[in-house]
Amino acid sequence: MSDTQNFVEIRNARKSYGYIEVLKDISLNVERGQIVAIIGPSGSGKSTLLRAINDLDPLTGGEVWLDGVQVNKTLPHRQYEKHINQMREHVGMVFQHFNLFPHLTVRENVTMAPRLLKGISKEEADQLAEEQLRHVGLLDRIDYYPSRLSGGQKQRCAIARALAMKPKLMLFDEATSALDPELVEEVNLVMKKLAEEHMTMIIVTHEMDFAASVCDRVLFMDQGYVVEEGPPEVVFKNPKEERTRAFLRKHLGANK
C-alpha cells in the first residue's frame, strides 16, 4: 500500500445479508492515535461496520486495511485463517456484554491469549496480568472469577484482557450500554486514560457526552450510510443534516 498516514482504511465497504443491505458503500480513514466515535440509531450498521474491521462480520464488498496490510484479502481458507488470526492479535475488541470467560479467573482471562499465542512464561504472564489490571484498577480482584465482579469491573477486566495482547487498535462495541448508570463512569475513565495514551480507538456508542469529550471525530450512521462526519463540536453542535439533528434531539433529550 502507499505510505499514506491512514492507519485504518475502509474502502467502499458493503455488507448484505441476502437482500438486506446493512452497509452501503462506506469509506472511513482513521489516523494513528485518532479516536473515532460511531453513533446512530440501532440497525444503522454501526456495529456491523466495527465488526468488519477485525473480520468478525466479513464484508461482502470493499476493503479493510490496517497499518498497510489488507485485512480481508483473498486467500485460500487455511492461509486466510492464519492471516486473520495474526491480524486480530493487533486489534483489541470490547463487547457490550463483556464476554469474559466465566471458567477462568480474572488473571487467566487476561493472560490466556498471550500465553497461548506469544508463548510467554508463567512469571511473565503474572507480571503482565498485574500490569494490565493495575492499569484498569482491578488488581485487587485478580484471582476472582468473573461471576463475582460487578458489571463495571467485568468490562474493565475485558479491556485489560484486550490490552494484554498489546493491540495497535481498540474497538469498542457499545462498551457501556449494558451497564447500570452508576457503573458507566468507571469504564469511561479507563477509556479516557487510553485516549490520553494515544491509543487508536474506534468506538460505537450511545453516549453522546462521552463521544463529545473524548473523540477527535464523529460519524453519524443511518440505514447503512454515513450521513454526517466531522469533529464532535460540529456534528453535535451544528449538524448539517436533518437526520442527524433529529437523532440528536431524541438522544440528547433522552440522555439528559
Partner: peptide, 18 residues
C-alpha cells in the same frame, strides 16, 4: 455456550480449534 465466547476468543487471535 454463548456465541460471544467464541467471538471474544477469536478476537484475541485464537484459532477456531484453540
Amino acid at each position: 455456550v454463548d456465541r460471544g465466547q467464541m467471538e471474544a476468543a477469536r478476537t484475541l487471535g485464537l484459532s477456531h480449534s484453540q
